[in-house]
Write a protein that binds this DNA or RNA. Sequence first.
DNA 1: TGTAAGTGA
DNA 2: TGACGTCACTTACAG
Length: 475
Amino acid sequence: MQHVFWDWKAHYSDEPVETVFDAMIAEFLLLSGSYVGSEEATIAHHKVSNLNELVEKQRALLAAAPRLQEYFQTIELPIIPVLKQMEKNGIILDVAELRSVSAEIDAALATLTETMKQEVGFEINLNSSVQVGTFLAEKLQVPLKKTKTGKYATNEAEISQHAENVPFIQKLLEYRELSKLRSTYIESLASAVAADGRIHTTYSQVVASTGRLSSSNPNLQNIPASTGFGQKIKSCFKAAPGKILVSFDYSQQELRILAHLSKEDALLTAFQEQKDVHTTTAAQIFHVAYTEVTREQRMIAKTINFGVIYGMSSFGLSTQLHIPVEAAQKFISEFYKTYPKIRSYYDTFLKNGVETGFVETILGRRRFVFEHASQKTIDNALRRVLINYPIQGSAADLMKKVMITIHHEVVTKNPECRLLLQIHDDLVFEVPDDAKFLEKFIPEVRAHMCRVYPLDVPIEVDVKYGTNWGEMKKL
DNA sequence: TGTAAGTGA
DNA sequence: TGACGTCACTTACAG
């Protein structure tokens, strides 16, 4: 989204708060209500003659909604300087080490490319999904679905089904993985390192309609997970000499929020008794004892647990699990038999959304649904969005709230301690590698995170630490 | 500039 | 009937 006025984060310290407030109101409420795409389109859409008029409209809307206003003033505004500080801090990237990882990937890619091109037999660009799709479908006779524009679909979910019989596909998947790492996580990260040896990302408060932060230039919220070459790349992110990185990760936060909001007894109990929630679901839907749940059953239950948060259908579940739709439907009905209050919670929540024209998070952040509010029925796509909103949005609320608290209660009181990154449910700090300091720091941050907002279930936080981001040890 | 693909939560 | 899991960002290709 183009910033309607200016980057208030950059101006926060030298502009009057009121001015920043005005600038932000426009974007903040536009976002939750009616983002259009450009200033001109936005002005037209809201039937105002200029953006100042829009600010007045938005300000009035905010004044008429006390809870939303409180959210805005206690969360959205105070987090601005926190984000600004995080951007300024940045995180060290060891470019020399990244270069050596790059050399390994280059070597692996070179051999792979050579054998693949030989197998193809004619000039082909392996990065072109069109060329690859044509080759797979027409030369190797692989039955491929079409994309919505009529091209052969070559995405991983589609072609991996045939990988066993077609060695070329196995190589292609490997090629894609390495190629992605090289282009996105080697070349661009290396060039993003500033003069201080650090990468300074940019956080936005107004991109994600659920209230999550987003990170860009570069995006540090989608650095590869800690496996294979991905881990090697992640390991190039380092703590400064004499310091370590400590990460605090909310455990199953979205499912805890679902339990809290829906008041579903079985789910509440599972968390209160510190059971594994996926195993709990598996035991219920497969009618077996908790201790008898197999890995396969737990995996299925996990898919369903998360699927519910996204409003997944039986079709979606069936494709994800590679099972018939009927079987998927059975799992879903077993799920709701186990957790009946989740269904009634969503029924009420959606009905209320249609009636009032908006839905709310735990702290009162709104998402407007006015374009559909007059309708009695609710579109499936909108239904999924709304189902996900209180979960993802409330998790984002609580994370922002605790970041503000930690900034004031911990970070500003310990100048040696810096908050570097937020990855949705995870906070990464750079702190002195000093046992005495850590003894105090870790329980303090964890306590703030666990007590940020009292839910009907306990909140748990996993702590990891290390000198680099790729090899963190559990506490 | 839009689409396809892949990375994360 | 058509579509079929949310929220993001970046890259590469194709037109």
